[in-house]
Design a protein around this nucleic acid. Structure first.
Lengths: 220, 220, 220, 220
DNA sequence: CCTTAACCGAGACGGTACGTCCAGTCTTATA
DNA sequence: TATAAGACTGGACGTACCGTCTCGGTTAAGG
């Protein structure tokens, strides 16, 4: 895999961790806008060039830090319980906790920056936003398949939008908390929304950009 | 009203408009992060000090521009039709159109910045976010009062979060468009969610209550 | 003389005096470089335009202030005593006192500015520097005419340069005071320098710019 | 000597020279007042921060430039000829040439600025004004020691003031040139002034600020 | 008496230099 | 070869003053 014979001084893992930690910490404490490459380097106790060598911009540091965090948390996006509603609620709760505690600032800042940076936008989609969307959608689709849910009145995609949209809306607007109670309320609402027996109107939902693998589940 | 006798040269309305227009335009074309006070001044053909004299930071320029835009649009937050559902859909549609076309970038950037600026957060709440929230909530409350809606299963606040949350989520994530069709779908979903006859037990665990046949509100 | 019929509000003498006083005071207290038109106007309690209306630049305010000061002092450049040496000493003393107490800063600043402003240079020559030069030179020439002095070894112009040059040198370099004692020492030195009987070497002094009326007096 | 191990990128000698050259050149061509840090940086083709990093203000750039110039010229302040008068004239001539050609504007501007900046005043004394004063005074003292001169009527310090004062006076007032001819005339005048046999009435000269090393040796 | 024109204060206007900070790049010595 | 250090060019920051311009209000001479 790594075909280069790896000569010279190897990359310092210490420096790598220090940079990622410093970036997340500074972003959460001072905000995305105030985060600077210089600040990251100084907080990490690392030369500036060392940061630039491995990450072209602060966006990249943050994305790497988020990915690293996810790996370390080894977070389960698939709760594996048989109970669909319980799984939905667990997923939402985990998402809310993580976002509220650690990554909210970074994510919102990155999102704002991504408005005019399609490449960044795509990277966020594929690493942060997309997987969670797909995980929730897959859960709901499982419920539909089991018959406990139905995508009659509203599509599953819109239901997912409701769940995560509420989270984002509250994160940025701060008019209400994002906590376990919200997870519960949303789960309840989704149940109502996707209650079997609702008349299907079967509008084929337009495919999302990253085309989740989830089968659209026949609207029959 | 204006008790100060207005001494000295009066403020130039031309310069004011040029600055606000330039700010919105630049923000929409280049993004919030790339927006600079210098750039605003130069695009507006105005001295830098003139911008700083009236607005301490780019946030303030943008907020003023948004407020000015709202005033100019003389946009109706209260559609005044008797039909509650129609009014909801109209409000959502108008909101989506405005946000998509003109103010999306600015708003997201401002929101990102507000994460560490409580004062800015409050100002956004009171001028941009709050009024729209309250307008939609009032419409829904009217529906409840009329009996066409019911806040049984989910609170009206959560319903509002669903509507605008979806908008924000799609604005920042860009996984799906924010258009009239979305307004329609959300309206339909809200109808389902707030269907009269839903067991009003508020927040506790959703029971297995049977729901009567909801009207499909066919959009076709 | 004043052919315009002088209609409208007449110029405020109060404002004029306030501006000139403020200029001199600020220049002496804060230095020439720190003197600003804005500061002059504010200290004088006068509108900025009122300053600009009558004086194009701070140089002009200062020159006017210096001229005004000279007029008010009604200072005698010609002491009228029969004793030439006494007159020389009196003139130097008066000059030193005035320059040290009030006008030193302004003069040096103006001089520095005049290095690249020939028009200013000429105005300073004709209003401030020149008259004093000529006054001293005339005194010395009178001494020569009376026989108490002789311009044999050194020209009168160089003698004048010695006297005022020392003053300027000490003003800017501050290595020694400019006081009555210096006036006395210089007078003594000039006596030595222009002592009758000194061997003439008769170098025809090149005329100075303002060509004082003083006869070069043949060195015969 | 340099005990710090010299970490990081070393200072660019190229940039240093470019800044000093640009400063002197601009000052001579446009005048001290018009000299700006920005202009220096741009003319030198150097970042603005690079100028500020090493010199806090334009004064410091100029003083450094003057010192650098003196070092490069490796100018002899002590001509080493046995003939005192010749040495005096040589020193004056060199001083006049240097000041007229290169440093006049800068020096006058610095002097004007030093009127309200004691620290700058002191620095100018110790680097520019003082050494020349002491060099000339030492020459004259040597002449006195040899018996070719006498500090009877006027003190050596006043004689030095005459020589350099005349230079300054003409530099700022521009009523006459500062050239070799002036050096010659001043030398002649000093000879007259310090002619042995002049009645020594011995006014105990007040010690000057910089207190030249020595007693002028017995006035034989 | 009553225009009326020039004066006056205040202060906004477009510009420009200030001195600071950070972005990214580079060049050194060291590991 | 990676690293910490730090100097490099470049550019936005927010401030201060420049010189110009418009206001409302004042003040005396001339009709």
């Amino acid at each position: 895999m790594n075909d280069t014979p790896a000569r010279g001084r190897p990359r310092s893992e210490t420096a790598r961790r220090a940079v990622l930690d410093a970036a997340l910490e500074l972003c959460q404490s001072d905000g995305y806008q105030q985060l600077t490459m210089k600040g990251i380097a100084e907080t990490a106790g690392v030369g500036r060039q060392t940061v630039y060598r491995w990450w072209p911009a602060k966006q990249d540091v943050l994305i790497d830090a988020l990915r690293d965090l996810a790996l370390r948390k080894a977070e389960r996006l698939d709760p594996e319980t048989g109970d669909t509603l319980r799984d939905v609620r667990t997923l939402l709760d985990a998402t809310f906790t993580l976002t509220t505690a650690l990554t909210g600032n970074a994510l919102i800042g990155l999102m704002a920056e991504a408005q005019h940076d399609p490449e960044l936008s795509h990277r966020l989609q594929s690493t942060v936003i997309g997987p969670r969307r797909q995980a929730l959608r897959a859960l709901l689709a499982r419920g539909v398949a089991e018959g406990s849910l139905s995508d009659g009145t509203v599509s599953l995609d819109l239901a997912v939008d409701f769940a995560f949209g509420t989270m984002w809306y509250r994160l940025i607007s701060r008019h209400a908390p994002v906590d376990s109670r919200l997870a519960e309320q949303i789960t309840t609402a989704l149940t109502t929304l996707l209650r079997p027996g609702g008349t299907a109107q079967a509008e084929p939902e337009p495919g999302t950009a990253e085309a989740p693998e989830g089968r659209p589940v026949g609207t029959a």
